[in-house]
Write a protein that binds this DNA or RNA. Sequence first.
DNA 1: GCCAACGTTGGC
DNA 2: GCCAACGTTGGC
Length: 159
Amino acid sequence: MTNNYWLLKSEPDTFGIEDLAAAPKRTTRWDGVRNFQARNMLRDSIAKGDRAFFYHSSCEIPGIAGIVRIAKAGYPDPSAFDPKNHYYDPDSAKYGADAPRWYALDVTLERKFKRVIRLDELRAHAGAALADLVILRRGNRLSVTPVSKKEWDFVLTLE
DNA sequence: GCCAACGTTGGC
DNA sequence: GCCAACGTTGGC
């Protein structure tokens, strides 16, 4: 499966769009994904040059804060091999260098929205234009989800 | 802080 | 391979 548009979740208390704006070259490593479904997308589907919504989760105003571009496609996540890292995975090593368990991306901030497009605004369109938006589905917890071109374009009209 | 939803683990 | 227990996510 390939797709050109995605949505990436981040907790702004840990790393928000302001942090990305302040990062060198407005670029950061997107690491620490420890879910197999999300991992598969990082590894197999997300390509350099694809774009993604930067979504703020677990915060006062959940919603889409801006757009990032994939600066580097999926590569083995170094944090999985670093015992001092919060995301260290002791089982990772046994998968071997040719079949890493976890993957990371590099993303560059393309632009911050003038305002956050809030989750409740997105949900207001769940009966129509955004009926299939994955993050609006019940119980969805994936930190990486695909977005269709139709959904992408529609969200941009909400800004 | 609560709790629903869901993924992962491990005993059997 | 089943499934209970456990951990995590994330909105509220």
